[in-house]
Design a protein around this nucleic acid. Structure first.
Lengths: 227, 227
DNA sequence: AAATGTAATTTTGAATTCATAATTAAGTCA
DNA sequence: TGACTTAATTATGAATTCAAAATTACATTT
């Protein structure tokens, strides 16, 4: 019998699946900007595909809330509004809280150690005042907790909503005070995780998300005033 | 100026949207059974549409987890497995808990009164041992709380997961003891809602969902043993 | 009869085509 | 000039077509 490594499943993605991923990237990387029209024809040429699979992908992205379809008028990258932020963050908070509870039940010692390393790196990123690196490390920590929860449905929903919120450049922005506070919260998160204290971890993650919402809303309002 | 009733938005749905809804109905009403192949050609003839919009709809349903697509082999109604139940119910629990919290903040007095009426009806359904009516009233109550939470993202996710779980006939089934217990839980839910006690309502809804999960798992295991 | 190989048929994925709706451009009149 | 029509253009939604893959039916070998 062949070794596991030799007999990996050959996962040939269908075109529409591939396009969903590519478009998500274009949107998160801000190549397609919130509020802008999605140029169906151009994208077809760029990707070298016909309209059928592209349109299938757009329909999928629309159910995820990343794209807005208008009857006979086409597809737009959906906007980030105050209402949307106030709606999505509480849901994200509930999902993260659950991920904390479940992670404490299912996480392995090695996973905790890996997250501890990420956490230490996060603190260094803060000390260096490297916002970009901080943001990336932060994402890795939260995703690692989600993975430790061993729940695909939870992971899927979390990822979709996270992508939806991440589109905004200014999400990575914070006031100095908020940044310090966020690091403190991460200190707590790390401790509760190491002690496998599910309820406290859940509560801290909820609070962490609530504060992030406030931080994002402040920036969003500033942005809106400037236009 | 015309009255509101006269000027309703004429929401001409696109074909694929319409088909998503129709297929969801066919699946929840058990006309398309879990595990069975989705007959693309037949459905096109039945609905009188071409394959393009139907296939778009299938892709959307697949991201919702209601349908499973296999490369070059077509679409199947996804099965309800023990793993899926163990995955979905905790997420549903977290969403319901949040809906309780938010509902206590946003619900109007009239809405509470309407839910109280539904609750009294639920108790009568129990006293009559009318399981079918009980199940329907139960659904109405939970949905009413979700609506009172005023959060579309939350409502969407809740509905998708609820549909995914409702496909199973035996979901509506319960042991006598469980049924009595469920009614007690609803009594608490009603009280906490009337007192706008968000945290307690959330905790009770979580517990309610945890118990439902156990009830469903028992039935699912019985079903699996019988085949 | 079971296992293997091959041809015919069906189904699928995706490109293309076509009718219709929306947008833009051009023309008309005050 | 500027509001309003009407014609030309473009984009969209959905049907149709076509190539490739999978399934089925049938034949061959052991």
């Amino acid at each position: 019998m062949a070794a596991d490594a030799d007999v990996q499943l050959i996962a040939r993605k269908s075109l529409h699946r591939e396009l969903v991923d590519r478009l998500q990237l274009l949107i998160t990387r801000n190549r397609l900007k919130p509020g802008s029209k999605i140029p169906e024809k151009d994208l077809c040429e760029q990707f070298g595909v016909s309209r059928t699979p592209l349109r299938e992908a757009l329909k999928v992205l629309a159910t995820d809330g990343l794209v807005r379809l208008e009857q006979n008028r086409g597809a737009w990258v959906s906007n980030i509004t105050v209402e949307e932020v106030e709606e999505v963050f509480p849901v994200l908070g509930a999902l993260e809280a659950l991920s904390g509870e479940l992670a404490c039940k299912n996480i392995t010692e090695n996973e905790v150690k890996a997250i501890r390393k990420l956490h230490d790196q996060l603190v260094r990123n803060y000390q260096d005042r490297n916002l970009d690196a901080y943001f990336k490390t932060n994402q890795k920590i939260h995703k690692a907790i989600l993975l430790a929860a061993r729940n695909k449905t939870l992971l899927n929903y979390w990822q979709t909503l996270t992508i939806r919120m991440q589109r905004a450049r200014y999400l990575a922005n914070m006031s100095d005070e908020r940044w310090a506070e966020a690091v403190n919260e991460h200190e707590l998160i790390m401790q509760f995780l190491e002690r496998r204290n599910g309820p406290e971890l859940a509560a801290t993650l909820t609070e962490h998300m609530r504060n992030k919402q406030q931080s994002v809303l402040r920036w969003l309002r500033v942005q809106n005033e400037m236009t």
